[in-house]
Nucleic acid binder design. Structure first.
Length: 807
RNA sequence: GUCGGCGUGGCGGAAUGGCAGACGCGCCAGCCUUAGGAGCUGGUGCCCGAAAGGGCGUGGAGGUUCAAAUCCUCUCGCCGACACCA
């Protein structure tokens, strides 16, 4: 198998345009999308694994008669380019990025991966980020973008703000060993929280997503249902503290309150005597880093304010404390503490010797000594008029009561927070607004987009020639926003741009988007399970509301492929353990590399890279080559066994392989799909060695094998196809149809059993499913007679080959 | 701590509740050249046995079933996500 065949076929495919997606096609569409990568230099075999998966699927779908959209692009803005530029002074991030893109593109082509390159999207291209900016303005127009002074996560290494989602365990997502700091800054946010409910509810529609990702998104959004209740402050008429609780049924057990250190009422409720200590404590809490504050290991600590509040349910006076285990960013920043039924409150009460009152009795009855909080449901006690009720009932009754009295109401809270999108970086899409002393925040008119980055690589805030501008409204001297957007904005809509990549008067053509979308298959790493996928879903819903797209969810079916590791670590150039596509394709050819990537392990699992098995797939390809083009050499093999593979066995094997390979490609179970093809090749070899004739049936077996192999090993398959004298591209050939009758085992047998004893057996048609076979059996005279009118206690379906195993 | 997922040969891993270990790697033997680290053929879960054959086997303990790697309960171990969210 000469390696020159690879460029040969790559050129033929390019000229024939097999990979181009036609907008006006009559065929059913199939949108096969892979997550666009960050162009970080050499792509590794880890990237290739992902893209080969997408390519195998695209090639099969084309052969199945779909009009396949299989595009590619680059997530080209972002910090690594700036870091690289800084490292080798003088390199512009743009040059570094575009250079990497050129390299990556060459490698992808080398692997025989076919993309519709006419639709390539590069997020740092002004023709792209022009529309990223337009979409930001759409958000602004719809009231979904706002500026706010807020304590933000600040990465001291990257010197930029991070979104919540980019803070992992209190550390920067890019630098796992760097603690994130808190800073107060005025920043742009997107109101993703407005969509929290829909983002959560619509997870139900994503039934073809991995359960794991659905759970992660659900938890991330974090809905809780409860009530907001106002607790009047003792001695301050008209003043009250609003708390949020998920357990209104425990209101009678509230023995104290806790405010977050940043809570606005802390100063007011604090008495003179306690003022100094409270101030001191709040000051310290503010300085603590998020990671210290969020540690559950730490003992709960706080200080009393000296102030009191009134429990509106029973009129009881309860002390107000300040403690940092209450977060200003969730709920109302204030809680009622019910130590008997909340573990955190229990710990706090125990430490400061605060009263603990049980108001829900566990099923085992009231506890004599409370050693720990009881958080389950039970019977209400010490709760006035609600005594004796089940706590789940009391939950509703107390809410009703609060609402009737006007001191509280049911409320739903989300863990999800608004998306902070400002980045104090050069290499990103500039936020297209102007600050005018007269008109305030003025959006740059869409027809003036893009707000292009200045050529010089230097912080935008240090480029007055760039940021000094005129107000688009009145022409006053004004200043441009010098922050750029989080790159996750770029990637929240790139899959829409592929539908009309050259549209130069709108972000995308709605009609074309509605034609291609939603994405039928989306493949990418699980590391994007929350960030990218949640943001893309959010964008899609906003665009739906704006009437610009017809779908409410962008990705129908999601697949998270595993990572390729080496020496136990994720493969990457920077970690120095990368194996490049060049090396893989250079070793034994692109096709062997492709098959090996698919065969190395289950696609969703992480795999350790080793080339130990590469030789096995090379042997497989060589065997296929001989079967197809030199079958006579196999018949002549010396020392061959005399085991015969009957023609019927070969025929059935071919039919079964069609069914299995089609199904497993479809379900992205490539490792087993490869195994089935190997089995077929083994059977075919056995057939020849056993003296099988090379008749029309053999010929059809060969052709079927080539078609099934084509998505995996397209160069070799095309070459063999051509050698066989076939006209036309194998890529254009039709996918073999599955013949269920030919694939079926000879027959199946039903065992009918009454009272645990075998009564009769019945042959049924081959090819029936278990359910069909059972039904057929129950309808048959023979079985009815055997049952003797008593009805079966059991009807057992057993394949013929296993009949002897049944007692 | 909570929520997910996973435990199968020497290895990567297969098995709609139906012959566990497909397919491949590795290993062993033979063939071929005989320079093989190339190629071909056969064998290869573990134990007993010369063989025929027998026994045991999917982390562990129970259970459901004619039948369990698969379903249920408990338990041990590993991995991942989230983690004071009131």
């Amino acid at each position: 198998m000469p390696q020159e065949i690879e460029p040969k076929w790559q050129n033929i495919w390019a000229e024939s345009g097999v990979m181009k997606a036609s907008d006006g096609s009559e065929k059913p569409k199939y949108y096969d999308l892979v997550m666009y990568p960050y162009p970080s230099g050499d792509l590794t075999v880890g990237h290739a694994r992902n893209y080969v998966m997408g390519d195998v699927l695209a090639r099969m779908k084309r052969m199945q008669g779909y009009e396949v959209l299989h595009p590619f692009g680059w997530d080209a803005f972002g910090l690594p380019a700036e870091n690289a530029a800084m490292k080798r002074g003088g390199v512009h991030p743009r040059d570094w990025t575009l250079n990497n893109i050129a390299k990556g593109k060459r490698e992808l082509k080398m692997m025989g991966i076919l993309y519709d390159w006419d639709r390539e999207v590069i997020s740092c291209d002004p023709d792209y980020y022009r529309w990223t900016q337009a979409l930001f303005l759409l958000m602004l127009e719809r009231g979904l973008a706002y500026r706010a002074m807020a304590p933000v996560n600040w990465c001291p290494v990257d010197k930029t703000v991070l979104a919540n989602e980019q803070v992992i365990n209190g550390r920067c997502w890019r630098h796992p060993d760097v603690e994130v700091e808190k800073r107060d800054l005025e920043q742009w946010f997107l109101k993703i929280t407005d969509y929290a409910e829909r983002l959560l509810d619509d997870i139900a529609l994503l039934d073809k997503w991995p359960q794991k990702v659905r759970v992660m998104q659900t938890n991330w959004i974090g809905r809780s249902m409860g009530a907001e209740v106002d607790f009047p402050v003792d001695g301050m008429p008209g003043e009250s503290i609003r708390i949020y609780t998920t357990r209104p049924d425990t209101l009678f057990g509230a023995t104290f309150m806790v405010l977050a250190p940043e809570h606005p009422l802390v100063e007011r409720v604090t008495t003179e005597k306690h003022r100094a200590r409270v101030r001191d404590y709040a000051e310290k809490a503010r300085k603590e880093t998020e990671i210290e504050r969020l540690s559950t290991e730490r003992e709960k600590a706080g200080v009393a304010t000296g102030g009191f509040a009134i429990n509106p349910l029973n009129g009881e006076k309860i002390p107000i404390w300040v403690a940092d285990y209450v977060l200003m960013t969730y709920g109302t920043g204030a809680i009622m503490a019910v130590p008997a039924h909340d573990e955190r409150d229990f710990e706090f009460a125990t430490r400061y010797d605060l009263p603990i009152r049980e108001v829900i009795a566990p099923p085992s009855g009231p506890q004599r000594v409370l050693r720990e909080a009881y958080v389950g449901p039970g019977v209400m006690v010490s709760s006035g008029e609600f005594n004796g009720l089940d706590s789940t009932v009391a939950f509703e009754r107390i809410c009703d009561w609060l609402e009737k009295k006007g001191i509280g109401k049911r409320a739903i809270k989300y863990r999800l927070r608004d998306w902070l999108i400002s980045r104090q970086r050069y290499w990103g899409a500039p936020i297209p607004v102007v600050y005018c002393p007269v008109h305030g925040i003025v959006p740059v008119p869409v027809d003036q987009l893009p707000v292009e980055l200045p050529p010089e690589y230097k912080p935008l805030s240090e480029q007055p020639n760039w940021y000094r501008t005129k107000c688009p409204i009145g022409g006053e001297d004004a200043r441009r926003e010098t922050d750029t957007m989080d790159t996750f904005i770029d990637s929240s809509w790139y899959f829409l741009r592929y539908a009309s990549p050259h549209d130069d008067h709108e972000a995308f053509d709605s009609e074309l988007v509605n034609h291609w979308m939603p994405v039928d298959q989306y493949t990418g790493g699980v590391e994007h399970a929350i960030l990218h996928l949640l943001y893309s879903r959010f964008f899609t819903k906003v665009l739906y509301d704006a009437g610009m797209v017809a779908m409410t969810e962008p990705f129908m079916r999601l697949f998270n492929q595993g990572m390729v590791k080496r020496f136990g670590q994720v493969m990457s150039k920077s970690a120095g353990n990368g194996v490049s596509i060049d090396e893989l394709a250079g070793a034994q050819g692109a096709d062997a590399g492709r098959i090996y990537e698919m065969f190395i392990g289950p696609p969703e699992e992480d795999v350790e890279w080793t080339e130990a098995g590469l030789n096995g797939v090379v042997k497989f390809l060589q065997r296929v080559w001989r079967l197809v083009l030199e079958p006579e050499s196999i018949v002549a093999e010396k020392g061959a066994p005399s085991v015969r593979v009957e023609p019927t066995v070969l025929r059935r094997k071919v039919a079964q392989t069609v069914g299995k390979v089609t199904e497993h490609y479809d379900e992205l179970r490539f490792n087993t799909a490869v195994a089935f093809l190997m089995e077929l090749a083994n059977t075919m070899q056995g057939y020849l060695q056993g003296g099988g004739t090379r008749d029309a049936e053999w010929d059809s077996a060969v052709r079927t094998l080539l078609k099934l192999l084509n998505p995996l090993a397209p160069h070799v398959a095309e070459e063999m196809w051509q050698h066989m004298g076939e006209k036309g591209l194998l890529a254009d050939a039709s996918w073999p149809a599955y013949d269920a009758a030919a694939a079926a085992e000879p027959k199946v047998v039903l065992v009918v059993q009454v009272g645990g004893k075998l009564r009769d057996r019945l042959d049924v048609d081959a090819g029936l499913s278990e359910a069909e076979a059972m039904q057929a059996a129950l309808a048959s005279e023979k079985v009815r007679a055997a049952l003797n009118g008593r009805g079966p206690s059991k009807v057992i379906y057993v394949p013929d080959r296993l009949i002897n195993l049944v007692p």
